[in-house]
Simulated assay, not measured.
Amino acid sequence: MSSNHAAAPYYFVPGPSKWPMLAGLSLLVTMIGASAWVNDAAWGPYVNYVGLAGIIAVLYFWFGDAIGESEKGLYSERIDHAYRWSMSWFIFSEVMFFGAFFGALFYARSISMPWLGDLDHKLIWPDFAPHWGGTGPAGTVQEFTTMTPFWIPTINTGLLLLSGVTLTISHHALRAGHRAMTALFLFATIVLGAVFMGFQVYEYIHAYSALNLKLTSGIYGATFYMLTGFHGFHVTMGAIMLSVILYRVLKGHFTPEHHFGFEGAAWYWHFVDVVWLGLYVVVYWL
C-alpha cells in the first residue's frame, strides 16, 4: 500500500465486482474435475486444470484491482487497519491448520502407539511393536526407513533462518527509503526459498526410492508427507507472494510510511519459518 492516507476517502467502498462469483465458479469446476480424476474419469484432469487456470486468472485480476485502487490513493488508514486484521486472522487460521496436523502427529505417536502396544491389544496384533516407524503389524506396511535430520533437513533449516534475516534487512531498507537494497535482499529471500524447495524435492525422491518411504507407509509416512508437503506448498505460495512484492518494489509502489503489501507477505514468510522449526524438531528429531 503506497496511497496517500490524507487524500483518501474516509472509508473506501468498492463497486460491484465479478471476481467473487468467478472465483466460486472456478473452485466448483476445480473440485468437479478433481472428483472425476480420483474416480478414474478420463476427462477429470482436463476439467481440473481448467478450474485451476480459472482460479489463477481470477486471483491475478482481483489482486490487480486492489493494487490499482491503492495506487490511485483510494485506501485510507482505516483500510490499512482492515488489511492488517484480515492478514492476522488469515495467519491465525493457518496456525490452526498446522496445529491440527501437529495434534494428529502427537496423538499417533504419544497416545495411540503405547495404547496399541499394551498387554490387552497383544491379543489382536501379537507381532505389533509400539515404536515409531517399522513394518507395521504382520507386515501390513512395506519395510521402510525413517527420516533423520542429517543433512538436508538441517541445511533447509539454515536456509529458512537465513531467508528470515534477509527479509528483515529488506524491510528495514524499505523503511529507510533504500529501494535498491530492498530489492536485492528481497530477491535473495526468494532465491533461498527456491533452493529450499529444490532440496525438499531431492529429499522426497531419496525418501521414496532409497528409503521406501511412501504415503502408504503407515501413519509415519502419512504424517511425514502431509506435514512437510503442506509446508512446502506454503513456502511456494510465500515465494510467489514475495515475487509479486519484488515486482512492486521495482515499480516504486511502496513508500517508507505505507507498505503493508510488503509487510503482509513478510508476516506470512516468517510464519512459514516458525512452522518449519516445529517440523524440524518433531518430525526429524523426535
Rank of each mutant, 00 (worst) to 15 (best):
H172W: 08
I155R: 11
T168H: 15
L162I: 10
T168Q: 14
L162F: 12
A173N: 07
L184Q: 14
I152S: 11
L174K: 05
L161G: 09
R175T: 02
A183C: 11
T148W: 09
L161T: 01
G177D: 11
G158Y: 06
S170G: 03
F187H: 04
I190M: 10
G158Q: 06
T182R: 07
H172P: 01
A188G: 00
L159V: 01
W151K: 02
N156Y: 06
R179L: 12
A188P: 00
T157K: 13
L167C: 11
N156P: 04
F185A: 03
H172D: 05
I169L: 14
L186D: 05
G177Y: 08
I152V: 15
R175I: 01
L174S: 09
A180Y: 00
G158T: 04
L162R: 06
V191S: 10
V191D: 04
W151D: 04
G164E: 02
T182D: 04
V165D: 03
T168E: 07
P149Q: 09
L174P: 01
S163E: 05
T189K: 11
L184N: 04
H172S: 05
H171T: 04
F150E: 10
V165K: 10
I155F: 14
I152P: 00
A183G: 09
T154F: 13
T166A: 11
L161M: 14
V165P: 01
G164P: 02
G164M: 08
I190R: 10
T189P: 07
I152C: 07
G164V: 03
T148P: 02
L162Y: 08
L160M: 15
W151H: 10
H171V: 04
P149F: 12
V165Q: 12
L160A: 03
A173I: 03
H172F: 13
L186Y: 01
A180K: 15
L186A: 12
T157V: 07
F185D: 01
A173S: 12
T148A: 14
H172A: 04
L162D: 03
G164N: 04
F187T: 01
L186I: 01
M181Q: 10
V191W: 06
S170Y: 06
V165T: 05
L160R: 08
T189W: 09
T168W: 08
G177W: 05
T166H: 05
A188H: 03
P149W: 01
M181H: 00
I190D: 08
L159K: 09
T182W: 11
L174F: 08
M181S: 10
V191A: 13
P153A: 14
V191I: 15
W151G: 04
T154W: 06
V191L: 14
A173E: 00
I152Y: 14
I152L: 15
L160P: 03
F185L: 12
T157E: 09
L160N: 02
L167A: 10
L161I: 06
W151L: 13
L160K: 07
I190K: 11
L184D: 02
H172Y: 15
T157S: 15
L167D: 03
G164W: 09
